[in-house]
Structures are given as structure tokens and as C-alpha cells.
């Protein structure tokens, strides 16, 4: 490949970079949490990683910031991208020493999705998880899922598995709209 001169695009990207924060300790843990509210789940951009409940801990040790993140599903293909987006947001805030820690235990549960997160999912057209994950029976019957569009409880399950690992596919029998259900685990 040919060597090339830095283009104006390169310079633009370079100039976009925020200089390293000389006083990273100025950002309190509360400020970090607030900052992470702006990092969206790439597969469900309606909710932030905080609302989704996958940020488990934020901790300063001197100038080093550790963020504990838990994956929603073992095979969630967005896990790495989410970690990258979190690191990017923190770097943009001038934090230099970032460690993203992947924790598996305690395992993520839909119970950790915040109330605001649930409301945003509904507004986005995804039925939020209903009830508590721990109450799901092994071979039990399905619960009633309300349509996020018209609110009708007259719905049917089309597939236990939907467009991503975390969703199931439903259809409303009243407004006839298909919708995703953020399934309980």
C-alpha cells in the first residue's frame, strides 16, 4: 500500500479528540454513571447501558477507573462493541486509565432493567419483561404479554426467539402489529 499524506478528514478526527483530562479525579463516580447514561445499547438503542442494568460497578483507584460490565447473554455479539463504546465515552471525557471488567456473576437478569428503561423499551415498540425472572417455571405456560403499541393483552407468541438473543417474537391479535418482547431470564 502507498503511504499517504494525512487528509483533512484525518485532521478533523484528530482535532475532535478531547485532550486527556489533567484532573480525572474531578469526575465523581456519580458523574461517571451520568456519563454512561449516554452510552446506548447498539442493538436496542432506545435504552442506555445503565438502564439495561449491565453496568454493575464504577470504581476509582487513584487515577485508574474500573467499570464492571456483565453480558446479557453468553453469546451476545454486542458485548465487545458495548465495552468499546463505554471505553470510548470515558476516554472522550478525558479519563486515561480505564479498565473494563467483564463479570459473569451474579448473572444479569431482566429484573435489573430500570423502570425508565422499561418505559423506553415500550415506547420503542418492544414489550418490556414482565414479572420476575426467578418466577419463570421450567416447563410452564406462557405469561400474558401486553402489546407495546395498543396495550391489548390479546397477543400471541410467534417464536420464543426473536431478532436478537434477548428477544422473543409476538403478535397483537387486536392491532395486528408484530412486536418484540424482551424476554425474562
Amino acid at each position: 500500500m502507498n503511504e499517504r499524506e494525512p487528509s483533512s478528514v484525518d485532521l478533523l478526527i484528530a482535532s475532535d479528540r478531547v485532550p486527556a483530562n489533567a484532573n480525572p479525579e474531578l469526575l465523581t463516580e456519580e458523574a461517571i454513571w451520568a456519563l454512561l447514561e449516554n452510552v446506548k445499547d447498539p442493538e436496542v438503542p432506545a435504552v442506555s447501558v445503565v438502564e439495561l442494568g449491565i453496568i454493575r460497578r464504577v470504581d476509582w483507584d487513584g487515577e485508574h477507573l474500573t467499570v464492571d460490565v456483565t453480558p446479557t447473554y453468553s453469546g451476545c455479539p454486542a458485548t465487545e462493541l458495548i465495552e468499546e463504546l463505554i471505553a470510548e465515552a470515558l476516554r472522550a471525557a478525558g479519563i486515561r486509565h480505564i479498565k473494563i471488567n467483564q463479570v459473569l456473576t451474579p448473572a444479569w437478569t431482566t429484573d435489573w432493567i430500570t423502570e425508565e428503561g422499561r418505559e423506553k423499551l415500550r415506547a420503542f415498540g418492544i414489550a418490556p419483561p414482565q414479572g420476575s425472572a426467578s418466577k419463570m417455571s421450567l416447563l410452564g405456560v406462557d405469561e400474558v404479554i401486553a402489546c407495546p403499541h395498543c396495550g391489548s393483552e390479546h397477543t400471541e407468541r410467534l417464536s420464543e426467539f426473536g431478532s436478537t438473543a434477548c428477544k422473543a417474537l409476538y403478535r397483537c391479535l387486536d392491532c395486528r402489529e408484530p412486536f418484540d418482547y424482551f424476554k425474562c431470564i
Binding site: 463479570v103 459473569l104 456473576t105 448473572a107 419463570m136 410452564g140 420464543e160 431470564i185
Partner: peptide, 21 residues
């Protein structure tokens, strides 16, 4: 092992519900 299993068992439960149905 316990932590990997804790994550995986939730998924396996879901798989079993489907395959048994």
C-alpha cells in the same frame, strides 16, 4: 465454573423449554 454456569443455566433453561415443547 460456578460463575460461567450461573450465566449459562438461564439460557439452558430457555433452550429446554423450547425443545421439550
Amino acid at each position: 465454573i460456578a460463575s460461567i454456569a450461573a450465566k449459562a443455566v438461564k439460557e439452558a433453561t430457555y433452550h429446554l423449554r423450547r425443545s421439550s415443547e
